[in-house]
Computed example of a mutant assay.
Amino acid sequence: MESNAIYTTSDAGLNRFFGKIYGLVGMGVGLSAVISYLMLGPFSHLFVNILMNYSWVYTAAIFVELALVFLASGAARKNTPAALPLFLVYSALNGFTLSFIIVQYTQATVFQAFISTAIVFFTMSLIGISVKRDLSGMAKFLMAALIGIIVASLVNIFLASGTMSFVISIISVLIFSGLIAYDNQMIKKVYYAMNGQVSDGWAVSMALSLYLDFINLFLNILRLFASRD
């Protein structure tokens, strides 16, 4: 992780950089999916035991996840060897916490939501890669909107409004779809700004951002599909 990966500033070099990032995103999503499957399948007895007797484990895992995001992001910016392991540990732990959410839905709904998320994700990725307009202004608006959605979600914990939850999910899908496009455009900007001399840390940092976009998009689409059912 300490050495820089040097690419040529050609389309082939950019494609290799994208390939590395998306390979990491695939590893993260795949690891999360495997852990969730194990918790709800072969290790379902452990899952039920935690759910019934040790619910604090889930809460603790959420706080550890938050810490891991900051640690992985910081390690990636510094291009240290710990960046990739931290990203993978976070992905695995996220698979654990996701199992407590996924268990509330039918397998068909989860599958449909995942496929829909993948379609939206790759569509917005292509838009972000190909669009010529600078999306930085849009990203600032989306981040402000995301803060508003987080506040609204906290308020809705007490209100328990189904309508408000539905609206929050729709807006969240739009927000994370836009962020996917922006993050893909950022990959190109970083690559060309560094003349192809991009470090592995940058690849992990970009992969973490896209992974978070994918997971949050999936969760909100899942809620929308469930409300439809």
Rank of each mutant, 00 (worst) to 15 (best):
K189T: 04
I119C: 04
K188R: 14
T163G: 11
K188F: 06
G178C: 13
R133E: 04
A181E: 11
G178A: 13
S205V: 15
R133P: 05
S125W: 02
M143V: 15
I171D: 15
Y182G: 12
S130L: 07
L146F: 09
I168V: 05
I180K: 12
G178W: 10
L210S: 08
L154T: 00
I175G: 09
S172T: 07
F166W: 07
S177T: 15
S136H: 09
V155H: 03
A145S: 10
G196F: 02
A181W: 12
L142M: 13
L174A: 15
M124F: 06
I180Q: 14
G128L: 08
G148Q: 07
V173L: 15
M186G: 10
V120N: 11
S136W: 03
R133L: 06
V131I: 09
D200W: 05
S165R: 02
A207D: 13
Q185Y: 04
A139C: 10
M164A: 12
L179Y: 05
D200G: 07
I171V: 15
V173R: 15
I170A: 05
M138C: 07
L208C: 07
F122G: 13
S165H: 06
I150A: 14
V167S: 01
K140V: 13
I147H: 02
G162M: 05
V167D: 06
L174S: 14
D183F: 08
A145R: 08
I147L: 09
D183E: 12
S125E: 02
G137C: 01
S161F: 06
I149N: 15
A118L: 13
F141D: 05
K140M: 13
V173I: 13
S177E: 11
V151A: 12
S199R: 04
A139L: 09
G148C: 09
V190A: 02
F158R: 00
A144V: 09
G162K: 01
M143L: 15
I150R: 10
L146S: 00
V151N: 06
V155Y: 02
S199A: 08
A181H: 02
L142K: 14
M164C: 08
L174Q: 12
S136T: 07
G137T: 05
L146A: 01
S169A: 14
I150C: 12
I187F: 03
A193T: 00
N195H: 05
A139D: 06
D200L: 10
I175A: 07
I168Q: 03
M138R: 08
Q185D: 06
N184E: 06
D200Q: 12
D134S: 04
V120S: 12
R133A: 10
A203C: 13
A152S: 10
V190H: 03
Y211A: 01
I150W: 14
A144D: 11
I187Q: 03
M143C: 08
N195I: 11
